[in-house]
């Protein structure tokens, strides 16, 4: 038996050394020696024929041979693998991937979505309204009567005597309050139109309107919500400034300036050396407006605000020409 085992090991060693580069041959050799019906298995079978006295010793020899063979083959396999990977032509990993093409959302959409997302988090619901709007909602119910100089603040496109292209998203204030009982918390993004076209004006642009109305809502709360928004949108450290202004549908009214995001308030071309950028208009809803929607101004207070999305997008992305937004040049759109 001992002889047979030694023979087997010797044959196996020779076979392994003569394998060459064929990896299939290694598999075959493994089957030949270590397989279920292999040569080693045959020897194990003969164990029964060995005398009782020798069987123990023969068993030990066989088990040792098995361990030895397994080591030999796994070493050979390891060596084989190393040779294989060294020999194989590696792929050029720098070849571009076969990717599906990827487009982009328009920067205005991205900005509007970001603004809405922030306010949605704060519990403001997104609402929409018509762009071809009644004079009543666009002006009248916002306390801008026909013969008021405030109408000069917005050059209007008319469809007919009583129908206009909305000049702001503010009609949504009235439309929303008309439909709902307080408390109201909404945000309204959309297209708006003014009859104006030059380097800094396009006849169509985008606004987001916000409205929060209920009991005990103060000007301090307006400052709180808008400060939260600015910090979310432009970063925590950005300073804000609330400045008195005039809108017929808010009282008191405030323009909100933020510290120039380009120069961090030091003064640059973008902020015209003031260190401040005007980004939105706001104020406490004027009691006159409540009268149109049948809210009791003694009971209900609240605030509204509106901002130009293009303006915010320009600041966010560092875009210096408003007209780029509507040219839809791929060389522009690809950048966002």
């Amino acid at each position: 038996m001992k002889e047979a085992v030694e023979n087997l090991l010797e044959t196996a060693c020779r076979a392994l050394s003569e394998l060459g580069e064929d990896s299939k041959a290694l598999d075959l050799a493994r089957v030949r020696f270590l397989g279920r019906k292999g040569e080693l298995a045959q020897l194990f079978k003969e164990l029964g024929k060995v005398s009782e006295q020798e069987r123990r010793e023969a068993g030990r020899l066989l088990n040792e041979a098995k361990a030895r063979l397994e080591t030999l083959f796994s070493e050979a396999l390891e060596k084989r693998r190393e040779l294989d990977s060294a020999g194989r032509q590696a792929i050029d990993v720098s070849v571009p991937g076969r990717r599906a093409p990827l487009g982009r959302l328009h920067p205005i959409s991205q900005t509007a979505a970001e603004i809405c997302r922030i306010f949605n988090w704060l519990g403001f619901e997104t609402v929409e309204g018509p762009e071809i709007e009644l004079d009543y909602y666009n002006f009248e119910a916002l306390n801008i009567p026909r013969d008021h100089p405030a109408r000069d603040m917005q050059d209007t496109f008319y469809i007919s005597e009583d129908v206009v292209l909305r000049t702001h998203t503010s009609p949504l204030q009235v439309r929303t309050m008309e439909k709902r009982k307080p408390p109201v918390r909404v945000i309204a993004p959309g297209r708006t139109y003014r009859r104006d076209s030059d380097v800094t004006h396009t006849p169509m642009f985008h606004q987001v309107e916000g409205l929060m109305v209920g009991k005990e809502i103060s000007f301090g709360d307006l400052k709180g919500i808008l400060t939260t928004f600015v910090h979310q949108m432009f970063g925590k450290g950005v300073a804000l400034r609330f400045r008195p202004s005039f809108f017929p549908f808010t009282e008191p009214s405030a323009e909100v300036d933020i510290e120039c995001v380009m120069c961090r308030g030091k003064g640059c071309r973008v902020c015209k050396s003031t260190g401040w950028l005007e980004i939105l208009g706001s104020g406490m809803v004027d009691p006159e407006v409540y009268k149109y929607v049948d809210y009791d101004p003694e009971e209900i207070t609240g605030f509204a605000f509106g901002m130009g999305i293009e303006r915010i997008a320009m600041l966010k992305f560092g875009i210096d020409d408003l007209r780029l937004f509507f040219e839809n040049d791929l060389r522009f759109l690809r950048q966002f």
Binding site: N120, G123, F242
Partner: peptide, 20 residues
């Protein structure tokens, strides 16, 4: 001075914003 008006957080009831 608007800047002297304290910045506060409004008290509002929790309700999920409906989503169209």
């Amino acid at each position: 001075g608007y800047d002297r008006i304290p910045v506060t957080s409004p008290l509002a009831s929790v309700h999920a914003a409906d989503c169209d």
